[in-house]
Amino acid sequence: MRFRLHLFELEDQAWFPHVVRQGMMDVLRFMITALGIYKPVVPLLLKGLAHTRQTQLVDLCSGAGGGIQQVWQELEQQAGQRFTITLTDKFPNVEAYRFLAEQTKGALRFEETPVDATAVPDSLTGFRTVFSAFHHFRPQTATAILADAVRQNQGIAVFEGAGKRWYELLLVWLVFPWAILLLTPFIRPFTWSRLFYTYLVPLIPLGTIWDGTVSLFRLYTPEHLEKLTAAVQAPHYTWHIGRARHWSGTGVIYLVGYPS
């Protein structure tokens, strides 16, 4: 898929029920972690961190923290040193963040107040990451996210847990529904609302399938990302853009940038 269609995602809509949005994000967090989607990009992230001499990361648009705990574990294991990550979002999923903070004994921190990825407070310093969320933004806003990192002289890494291939649509349509029904009872932290909106009123599986489909059409290809970085006009930054291969055969689209 070389084209990009910016169709609407349910979780982006202000009217969409927050409890269903949280349930959808919890499902994605569980599946991303279970499949180890972002393991292949950890070496790329480590290179950026080493170049900027950072051990503090600021995760933007964290959602429910999909895969971030696993990324943190892999960072520490592969680098042999401590890292801390601050989770932020325009609509913070505080319950999920507290759970992750407890699981990591505070290595994963979080901001309870909304954080705009295009205007990150100066007090939030660290190498910025965006997992599974960059496609939510139109080109002008996506460029503004990169430009804000450049303005504050911070490194930034963008990762999308798909390769924008046609066969990935079949995974969303044929595998996701059954996976959600089978895995939901095992998702933590446990909530009755997640069970209700999965099995009795199936808004979570239906919403996840719809948003998953739209996300694939919305994804920026590496060629799109090159145009976005060119629009930022930051010749003093080094940009690495491409696809990292996942064991399942899908890809992870990535962009890593930092001051040269």
Rank of each mutant, 00 (worst) to 15 (best):
Q152H: 07
D148E: 01
P92G: 08
V71P: 01
R109L: 14
I68K: 02
A117L: 08
V130T: 06
H136A: 05
Q154A: 15
G155Y: 00
I156A: 07
G67N: 06
Q77I: 03
E160N: 14
N153L: 06
A149G: 11
I156W: 01
V71Y: 04
G80K: 08
A107H: 11
F99L: 07
F99R: 04
Q78T: 06
R128Y: 06
D122M: 02
V94G: 03
V120F: 12
T86M: 00
L87N: 03
A149Q: 04
I68S: 04
F127P: 01
F127G: 07
G126V: 09
R82I: 12
E160S: 10
D116R: 02
E74L: 13
V130C: 09
R138Q: 14
S132R: 05
R109H: 15
Q103D: 15
T104S: 13
L124V: 03
R98M: 10
Q77P: 14
F137C: 02
D122F: 02
E112Y: 02
F127D: 01
H135D: 14
F134W: 01
H135E: 06
I68P: 05
L87E: 01
L108K: 06
V120D: 08
S132T: 11
S123W: 13
E74Y: 02
L87P: 00
I145W: 00
I145A: 10
